[in-house]
Design a protein around this nucleic acid. Structure first.
Lengths: 175, 175
DNA sequence: ATGTATGTATAGTATGTACTAAACGAATTA
DNA sequence: TAATTCGTTTAGTACATACTATACATACAT
C-alpha cells in the first residue's frame, strides 16, 4: 500500500471522526469505525489500537459502543482468542439501528411528560383560564409534532430494506 | 396562572432542554426556546433571564443562536428600546432551517475530501494494486451515501411547505 | 453632559466527558 | 502453578464548553 493511499485513508478517518463528533459521538468512535470501514478484512483490537493511536481501553469501549449501535460486528475466528471486528457497510441499516437505539432516551421521556401534562390539564373539563387554554393548545401542537417524529422513526426502523429505491421514491415526493 | 400550570411548564422546559442537549445544543438554549414557546406573547431579554434563571449574557448568546437557527424571531415594539423574542411555532419550518444551517460544516468538508481522494486515486487509470481497488470501492459507496443524504436534505430545505400532508405521504411509502 | 437602560463582549470558573495509564480478570499455554 | 495473552475496568487527567460575573458600548433621557 503506497504512501498516498495511507494519506487518503487518514484524511477519511479524520473526516468521519469529525462528522461523528458533530452528531454527538466521541471522536475515537468515529475513527475506529472509519478504520474498520476502510479495512478489507476484520481487525483485532490491537490492530485498531495501532491504526487509531488510541489506547486499548479507549478502543475497547468505543468498539463496544459501535457494536451496540450496530455499526460494527464482532467476528470470532476458531482457534484464535482475539476478537475481530468489521464495519457494517450498509449505511441505511446502520442509520436504522442508530435511530432505534437513540429513540428510547430523553425523547420518550419528554413525550410522556407532555402527554401527562395534557391529561392533567384536561382533567378538569374546559379551562376557564385563557392562559391555561393557551398552554393546552401549545402542548397539543408539541404532542402532534412528537407523534409525527415518532411514527416516522418507527416506520424507518420497521423497514427491513431501506435501499436506494425507497430513498429515491421519498425524494420524488419531496419534489 | 395557578401553581400546577407553573409546575407543568417547568417540566416541559426541562424536557425540551434535555432533548436539545441530546442533539448537541446547550441546555440554556433549549430552556430559552421552551420558555418562549410556552409564552403567549413575546418576551424581553430580562423576562427570559427571570424565567430561565440564567444570566443576561448567557440568555443573550443563546437567544441569538436560536435566532440564527430560525427557531426564534426578534420583534421590536415602537417606542420601546427592548428587544422582544418569540418562538417559531412551525416545527417543520424550524427543522428545515436547522438542516440548512448545519449542513455546511463538517459534512461538506468530508464530502469534498472523499471526492478529492477518489479523483486522485482514479487519476492513474486502473489500479493494479488490489487493496487500492478495494479502497476505491469503499470510497465510492461512501460518496453515493453522502450524495443521497445531500439530495435528501436539499429536497427538504427546498420545500416551502413541509406540513402534515407531506409527512404523511412519506409515511405511506415507508409502509 | 450626565445618568440610565439595554444588549454585547470578555475573563474566569465549573462541569461533563473522552481519553491515558495502569491494575485487574479470565482464559490459554508451559 | 506460573507465565502469557487478551479484553475490561477504574482512577486520574486533559480538554472542551457553557455558564457566571463583570466590564464595556450604545442609545435614549433628563
Amino acid at each position: 500500500m503506497n504512501q498516498s493511499s495511507e494519506q487518503i485513508k487518514s484524511e477519511i478517518v479524520e473526516g468521519l471522526s469529525n462528522i461523528g463528533q458533530f452528531w454527538g459521538f466521541p471522536r475515537g468512535m468515529g475513527a475506529s469505525f472509519a478504520v474498520l470501514y476502510l479495512s478489507p478484512g476484520p481487525l483485532s483490537l490491537d490492530e485498531l489500537v495501532a491504526r487509531t493511536n488510541l489506547t486499548k481501553g479507549a478502543v475497547s469501549t468505543n468498539v463496544r459502543s459501535l457494536a451496540r449501535l450496530g455499526l460494527v460486528h464482532g467476528v470470532s475466528r476458531l482457534g484464535d482468542r482475539k476478537d475481530y471486528y468489521q464495519a457494517e457497510t450498509d449505511f441505511y441499516k446502520a442509520i436504522r439501528s442508530i435511530l432505534k437505539e437513540r429513540k428510547n432516551h430523553e425523547f420518550d421521556h419528554a413525550v410522556s411528560s407532555v402527554t401527562q401534562a395534557l391529561s392533567k390539564l384536561e382533567a378538569d373539563g374546559r379551562p376557564a383560564d385563557p392562559e391555561q387554554a393557551f398552554l393546552v393548545e401549545r402542548l397539543r401542537a408539541l404532542q402532534s409534532f412528537f407523534d409525527a417524529l415518532d411514527s416516522l422513526t418507527a416506520a424507518v426502523t420497521r423497514l427491513e430494506s431501506l435501499g436506494l429505491n425507497t430513498v429515491q421514491s421519498v425524494l420524488k415526493i419531496l419534489k
